[in-house]
Structure formats: C-alpha cells, structure tokens
Design a protein around this nucleic acid. Structure first.
Length: 768
DNA sequence: GAAAAGACCTTTTTT
DNA sequence: AGGTCTTTTC
C-alpha cells in the first residue's frame, strides 16, 4: 500500500499525522476526530516505508521495530485487528500492547539484574491488601487506626512518583511499612502493578546496555491516550525514545481522567518542551456527534483553565437539543430512562447509560430487569475478581510459584481441611524459623503428626500431585483437574444452591478461557506449549485483564451500562448520563479546583460518547449516605451547557424545590412542625407502574403525608413516624449518641421496637 | 472448626 | 441499605 492510498479520504491534518513518520510528534486528537483511524494508518505507513519487496524489509524499519502502546487490552486488540485488516500478514509482528503487558514482556526477559527471577508473579490490588494486612500485623498496628486501603493508596502514590512533596512526620510509620511490603513482595518473587513500570525504568537506567538493546528493537514508538500517562510511564517512554526520538503520542488533554491513578496532565501540556522541535498536529474535526451535543460538551470543558486551546468543529447538523430530564428522586431516573427508550423505540444496543460511580448502576438495573430489557453491565465486579475464580487461580499460582505465600494462605483451607488460624500460625512460625516459604513449611510440619500435622501432610501431598501434572496436561484440563482434585467442585456441589451452581459455571468459564490461551498466539506470534509456560502466560493475562476489556459485543442487542471512565473511547447513538447533581457529578470528593477540572473533563468524555442524542437526568432529591433523602442541586455542569443547545432546564432557577427541608429546623418541641402542604413530595410519590417495590411490606395509608428530614434531630420523643415495614408508630424514648440516636417506638401494629434512626429509613408523619 | 448473628464500613474513578 | 469482616454460638 502506498502512502497516497493510506491518506485517501483523510482531512489535511489527519493526512499530515499519518505521513509524519520521523521525530517527536504530538497529535492532539479531540473527541471523535478519527484518532484510531490515524493511528492504524500511521502504523501501516511505517510498514509501507519499511517494505522493500514481497515480504522483504529494510533492516532499519522491520515490522517488529514498531511498538504501539495503549492502556487497555481491548484497545490494543482493536488496533492490532485494524492494522491487520489494512496491511495483512506483516502487521502480526508489530507489537501492539498495553503498558503493563509490554513491561511484563521486558521483565520476563531481563529482570534478573534487579534480583527477581524471571518467573516472577504479579500481585493485583487484592493481593496487595493481603500483604499490607500482614505488614500491619507485623508492626502491631490495628487496621482500624490505619486502614490497609489507605496504606495501599500511599504505596501506589509513592510508586507513581507523586508523593515527593508529601510531609513525613517523624513518627510516620510509612517508610518501615513500605520497606516491609517491598521485602515481602521480593521474597515471594512478586511485583505489583506499579512495579511493572518502575522496574523497567530502573532496569534501563541502571543497565544502559539493556536499554540499547530495547531501543534497537523498538525504533518507532506510538502511544495512545498519552494524556493518561503517569510520571513513571513518561520516564519509560523518554528512555525508550532515546536519541532517535521517533516517538509519536496521541492524546487529548480534555480527556485526561486518570489523575487519581497518577496520570499527569503536564506530560501532554509540556510535550513540546520535553521534545524540542516536536511536530504538533491538532485534529479538531469531529466525525461523531451532532452539533448540539458537541456544543454542550465544549461549553462545559471550556471552563477549565489547565487545557490547550482548541475548538472542535463538525459538519454534521445540529440535531436535537440535549435534553435534561428532571425526576422526583434517584429511583425515578431509571423509570424515566426506560420510558424514553421505549418512546424512541430503537435497538437496545443503541443505548448507553453512563454514570459517575458504580453504585448508581443498581437502580437502573432494577428498572431494566423489571421491564425485561436486556442490558450489559460493564465493569463492576470483573470476572477474574470473583471469589471462586480467584480461589482456583490461587491454586494455579501456587503451582506456578511455591514462594507465593499469599496464594497458599488463600487456598490452604478452601475447601475446609481443618487448617484454621492455629495451623496457619504455626505454619508461619515454621517458615520464619527456617526462612522458607509456607509451602516448604507445610511439607516440614506434615511429618510431625497430630491433627494439624496430618491435615498439612494431606495438603502437601495434594499439591505435590498437582505439581506433577502441570507439565503433562493442556491448560484447560489442568484447570478442571485442579478444581476437581482439590475438592473445590465437590464443596460447591454440596452447597446445592443457585449461587453455588453459578460459581461452578464460572469455573467452567475459566476453563474455557484457559483453552483459548492455547489457540491464541502471544504478541510475538508464539503459541504457548502446555506446561509451566502456558500456565504463567495464563496467570499474567488473568491479572492484567481489566474492566474495559469485557465490553459487550456489538451484536449483543443489549443496553450498555458503564461508568464514565470505562466509556472513554466508545460511542453510542443515544447516551443517557444519569445523576447530574452536585456531589454526584461532580463527585463530592472533588474539592480542589484541579479535582473539579478533572470532573469536568469526565463530563466532557461522557457527553461526547453520544452520536445522535444525549439525555441528562437529574433527581430533585437523592438518597444520602445512610438511606436519607436529601435535596439535590442540579450539577454545575448542566448550567455550563450553552442555553441554545439544551432543553428541559427551567430558565432562571436551578431546580431547588420551592421549600427546603432544611428550613424545617429547628423544630418546636412536642410535635413535628406542620409542613406546607405540597403535593408531589415524598408522601405522594406515585407507585411504580408495574410490580410493587418489594422492599416495602407495609401498605402506606392513602393520603398519608410524610417527609424525610435531613436532620436526625427531628426525631424527638412524641413524634409520629412511618417505618417502611413496621408501619406507623410514636417515639417513646430517645437515647444513644447524638450522631447515632436510638429510638424506642411504639408501633400501632407491631408494638414496641427499638431502632437506630440512622438505618431505619424513618419518615416523619405530618398531621396538619 | 464451622455456621449464624452482629458490628462495621462503605462509595470515586482502574491498568 | 447492603455487603464484608468479626464475634458469638454450637
């Protein structure tokens, strides 16, 4: 294929991006500007230039000299696929992969100078937590005063190079915790996610000869989603690019949404300083969305300060206005969405529902289920995170690496083998005494007789037997063999519940994905042989697979539900963004100006997923932290949408209700103040159109007026309340703490009961 | 040692 | 409200 053919049908900027092959290049690609198209054609253009004849390549630009890095396996797979479709066979040798997989590949070959063995294992965040818990125990710090998740956050920040300015108090235990954490990983021959990147940087920095070898292999480097790179990834790219500087990065500063994970916007904003003489190309022509959608999204993101100036333009017509749908409460958002979908009457797969936090998916799911609308929930609990899958993988990990103490601790008593805390304690003591791993300790104690001794002997024998089988079996058979021989399947069968049957099914699914490993070539085109190699390859994949990798197939015929983060890079004809309220989107934890700007970029990403129609929903009130309703305030991002692109917003006001619950306090003593009568408020919410809400077992008396106070102080002695299942009652006593009052209530139907106001979902009855 | 009941914490986003 | 981890009970 010639360059002319490859740039056919592209606009001038795209053409330039495809044809600029040497030296540093920054492509600023706005949402929907044909970024992937440009990237794939650019790879094809490199291949074309390196081809000197049928299957013959110039020695300075062979297919395997090209590296393309993405953030998700899904994106990598798609790009590989598209390049292959474009140029055929020779694309197979181009290395298209994620940052993490690429680093695993490098380290599998070259990690030894750093003191790890080449068969190292990768610890995911769950493993991290287990290690941290052990560390905290070592230093006698209770997880209450120092939550393991907080330690993990700090370790991650440190490893991402973000904690340089962090104040270290003299008494701060963090350095010793980190040291112990790292020592434990090293002992288990393990690396965590951040190590994968950092160790490559360290390796290359300390061993220039190794770096030169990789620079020689990858002479042309392309990076997708460059705005999401963190400092470690930046260092890695800078090293790899070396003096040749054939580094092309594609990104959009307006779509940088991974600051919390260490992404540094400066990487893209300062690319030109970092690589002097870099060519910069802006792709500002949007081919995805109708005009009004673009107007809305641009209007929002324009309010950010930290951004490169740019304006997306489109030749598409304006289309329908972006529509704001106000609903009574968050439960009604789902109903409204479904009604709108039914009214539009399109294919289910045309619709996507996008939300800020995973928790919001639930209510939408409920309504979809009730209406028998097929949907696919992306993310949430990913497949490899499921307990039974992790258990079986735990056995496989232990077979792969006897030093993996975390894996042993996970599986040693699943199914139950009489090896509880006591046994684990002596196991750890034995291991510490001889400086061995738990696996060896189990073998040693297995000869000592006694209850635990016999159980350990049996476990050791089992593991020995499984180990012997590893080289003999194809991977999928091994998975099945492990699941059966360990008694895991029998344990689930004995449970005889739907849940257990589902778990068995998941293990079968794991087996199927293991079978696929044997058919699928890896990045270098090799199909792994049965035995330890394929096992390790399989475990790597299981650990590195992410949530974005399990997107629904196009033809699935179902509505897609996903977070704004997972939606990046995708597009749908009709998009609903739900929960457009302050403290929801933007999220409550976004306080700093930089945080808000990131939220704004996230909103921009969410909006620009839509091709034809964009709906925003916003509840007037929503459930607060403990089941309480609180007033919701329309998201500032909705206010930032230009008025001529939006319909549904009442001019002049937000959507604050005419009277606010907050005005009720302070209440007089004795009986609750009478609330202004106002139909359509909490008491007269229309019942759901179809099935009655299953949670409420008490039939609410018709015409009863209640309100949900935002303040627990409203529940005073003598007040009349409505409980969701116990009905109407009067508060007799109130004690407990001010923040967590305990009430005894005399219910008309159920008699006296004691409840905590925080959790009981009580409403105040209003008698006027 | 395992099942049942209870405290407790959670919710930001993820390779 | 709901799930997870911890404590209690058999």
């Amino acid at each position: 294929m010639t360059l002319a053919e490859l740039t056919d049908g592209l606009n001038p900027e795209q053409r330039r991006a495809v044809a600029t092959l040497d030296g540093p290049l920054l492509i600023l690609a706005g949402a929907g500007s044909g970024k992937t198209r440009v990237l794939t054609r650019r790879i094809a253009a490199l291949l074309a230039r390196g081809t000197v004849g049928e299957g013959a390549f110039a020695p300075w630009l062979r297919p395997w000299n090209i590296l393309a890095v993405t953030f998700t396996n899904k994106a990598a797979g798609e790009m590989r696929h598209r390049v292959e479709a474009l140029v055929g066979e020779s694309a197979r040798h181009v290395w298209v992969s994620t940052f993490h997989s690429t680093c695993v590949r490098i380290l599998r070959q070259d990690i030894e100078p750093l003191g790890w063995r080449r068969d190292f294992v990768i610890y995911d965040d769950d493993d991290q937590l287990r290690v941290i818990k052990a560390v905290l125990e070592e230093f006698k710090i209770s997880p209450k005063e120092l939550p393991p998740a907080a330690v993990r956050g700090r370790i991650d920040r440190y490893k991402n190079g973000l904690s340089a300015g962090e104040y270290l108090a003299r008494s701060d235990p963090f350095p010793k915790l980190l040291a112990s954490y790292d020592a434990r990983l090293k002992k288990a021959n393990a690396l965590d996610f951040n190590d994968l990147i950092n160790k490559v940087v360290q390796l290359w920095t300390e061993n220039p000869a190794v770096l030169t070898r990789w620079q020689d292999r990858w002479r042309y480097v392309l990076v997708d989603e460059y705005q999401d790179t963190n400092p470690a990834q930046y260092s890695l790219l800078k090293l790899l690019a070396g003096e040749a500087r054939n580094l092309a990065v594609v990104g959009d500063d307006d779509q940088s949404i991974y600051r919390f994970r260490g992404a540094d916007l400066r990487n893209i904003l300062e690319f030109e300083q970092d690589f002097p003489g870099a060519a910069v190309i802006k792709l500002e022509q949007n081919y995805r969305s109708k005009g009004n959608i673009l107007k809305a999204a641009s209007g929002v993101v324009r309010n950010n300060k930290a951004r490169k100036d740019k304006t997306l333009r489109t030749e598409a017509e304006d289309g329908e206005l972006v529509k704001l749908l106000m609903t009574e409460d968050d439960a009604a958002e789902g109903e409204t969405i479904v009604n709108t979908m039914l009214r539009l009457g399109r294919n289910w797969s045309d619709y996507a529902v996008i939300y800020r936090t995973n928790a919001l998916s639930r209510q939408v799911e409920q309504v979809l289920t009730r209406n028998r609308i097929p949907y696919t929930l992306v993310g949430g609990r990913k497949f490899y995170d499921r307990m039974e899958v992790k258990d079986i993988l735990g056995y496989l990990r232990l077979l792969n690496n006897p030093d993996d103490d975390i894996a042993l601790a996970r599986v040693v008593n699943v199914p139950a083998r009489g090896l509880g805390d006591k046994a684990m304690e002596s196991l750890r003591a034995e291991a510490a005494r001889h400086g061995t791993n738990l696996r060896a300790a189990a073998r040693a104690l297995g000869g000592t007789g006694g209850r635990a001794g016999n159980a350990l002997a049996a476990f050791s024998l089992l593991m020995d037997r499984l180990e012997g089988v590893v080289p003999l079996m194809p991977l999928s058979d091994l998975v099945a063999y492990v699941a059966t021989e360990t008694g895991y399947i029998a344990m689930l069968e004995a449970e005889d519940t739907d849940e257990a049957r589902g778990r068995i099914e998941n293990i079968r699914e794991l087996q199927r994905s293991a079978a696929a490993v044997l058919e699928e070539p890896d990045d270098d085109g090799n199909v792994p042989e049965p035995g330890p190699m394929s096992l390790r390859y399989f475990l790597d994949r299981a650990t590195l697979s992410g949530q974005a990798d399990e997107l629904p197939d196009e033809g699935a015929g179902s509505v897609t539900l996903l977070t704004a983060h997972l939606a990046k890079g995708l597009e749908f004809p009709v998009v609903f963004v739900i929960g457009m309220v302050e403290k929801g989107f933007p999220h409550a934890r976004a306080e700093l100006e930089e945080d808000i700007e990131e939220e704004r970029r996230l909103a921009y990403v969410a909006f620009t997923r839509a091709r034809e129609r964009l709906f925003l929903t916003s509840p007037r009130r929503r459930r607060g932290l403990e089941g309480w309703y609180e007033d919701a305030v329309l998201s500032r991002f909705v206010h930032e949408i230009p008025e001529d692109a939006l319909s549904g917003r009442e001019p002049g006001r937000g959507h604050m209700p005419a009277w606010r619950l907050g005005n009720l306090t302070p209440l007089g003593r004795g009986t609750p103040a009478a609330a202004p009568s106002r139909p359509g408020w909490s008491s007269e919410r229309p019942a759901p159109a179809r099935a009655p809400a299953p949670t409420r077992s008490f039939a609410r008396p018709a015409g009863l007026r209640t309100l949900v106070p935002e303040n627990l102080d409203s529940f005073i002695t003598g007040a009349e309340v409505l409980h969701p299942s116990l009905g109407i009652g009067t508060i007799q006593t109130r004690d407990g703490t001010p923040g967590n009052p305990r009430l005894t209530i005399h219910f008309a139907g159920a008699g006296p009961r004691t409840v905590y106001a925080v959790t009981a979902a009580l409403e105040l009855v209003i008698r006027s």
